[in-house]
Simulated scan of single mutants.
Amino acid sequence: MSKKKLLDLAREQIRLRHYSMQTEKSYVGWMKRYIFFHHKKHPVEMGKAEIEAFLTHLAVERNVSATTQNQAFNALLFLYTQVLGIPLKDQNIQALRAQQRVHVPVVLTKEEVIRILSGLAGVYQLMAYLMYGCGLRMKEVLQLRVKDIDFGFDRVYVWDSKSLKDRTVPLPQKIKQRLRLQVEYVEELHRMDLADGCGSVYLPHALERKYPAAHKETKWQYLFPMKTISTDPRTGLRRRHHILERTFGRNIKLAAEKSGIHKRVTSHIFRHSYATHLLQSGVDIRSIQELLGHKSVETTMIYTHVVKELNKESIKSPLDF
């Protein structure tokens, strides 16, 4: 079995399980690195010792983070168990682990959030308002469909999130009318696409087989579509995809630079700020956990540490005595 054949099989298995394109690229990339690290030896001829050597190499010589090392291990676990049918569960893989760093999230003040949001325009500003106003991850904003905005009950539905836990969050009243206008824009754009013989949108999992006509329905269209129609790299179909992550990220970066704020501003800072500001306003930690979609309250507890750090403002430096 050639290396190319093996990686093609890996891609097939990844797509069969409906993993994202990003996960596919990442997993296949780690499989390649693993094979090249062992001088193109086929994985069926390797096992526990070779996996441990590769993971230890990443931690010691490459100095990767614990998250990156775990991602590499998950890719190899997928390769052996799902592609090659070789179980690793009972092999007790032992490798020198990369150190897990505990990061305190950087947050913005409410005034800083406003300054950055003011530096954005049009649809990118609306998307950033949703990230801060609802505590959404970037991917969750990008993957919103028209049907996910419930104007009647003032809710935003978040499906198939990172935690695989569907949830709803309150719809911010401040942007309700702008969201209505965005839906109207998508409706008109979709009408034009249908008239041009297009109008199809990607549907997750088996929904396209279950509802064969849904891919051309307005409610399934992305809330924040690209201006142009593109070719789906997996199917070759021409569709209107959602705005790209890198495009949105670039706009956030430019807005942060214009604001004159010298904190490290990423898209995730809006989610961190959302949670911290809710906690500061008296919302309980369990409610914030549900709103963020965290599986465990321990994940959400990091924001209590952030608030404690911010509350140290009352402690003066000896220089100020």
Results as ranks from 00 to 15, higher is better:
245 E>D: 14
64 V>R: 09
2 S>K: 03
133 G>L: 10
58 L>H: 07
89 K>H: 12
156 V>I: 06
170 P>H: 03
319 L>A: 10
87 P>A: 14
211 Y>G: 08
158 V>M: 01
24 E>L: 11
295 K>H: 07
247 T>D: 14
188 E>M: 08
276 T>Y: 13
271 R>P: 00
259 S>Y: 11
303 Y>P: 07
287 S>F: 04
236 G>E: 00
30 W>A: 10
12 E>V: 12
35 I>S: 01
95 A>Q: 10
103 H>Q: 06
96 L>M: 14
173 Q>N: 09
299 T>V: 09
9 L>M: 06
249 G>F: 02
89 K>G: 15
176 K>A: 14
232 D>R: 11
85 G>S: 02
155 R>Q: 12
87 P>L: 12
207 L>M: 11
170 P>Y: 02
301 M>P: 02
146 V>F: 06
102 V>S: 13
232 D>H: 14
296 S>F: 02
25 K>I: 02
284 D>Y: 08
44 V>E: 05
45 E>P: 06
272 H>I: 05
157 Y>H: 13
219 K>W: 08
278 L>C: 00
128 A>Y: 01
63 N>G: 06
228 T>D: 14
198 C>D: 05
145 R>N: 12
241 H>F: 14
19 Y>M: 05
210 K>F: 13
232 D>M: 10
180 R>M: 09
237 L>V: 13
293 G>H: 07
18 H>D: 10
46 M>H: 01
68 T>M: 11
202 Y>D: 12
135 G>M: 01
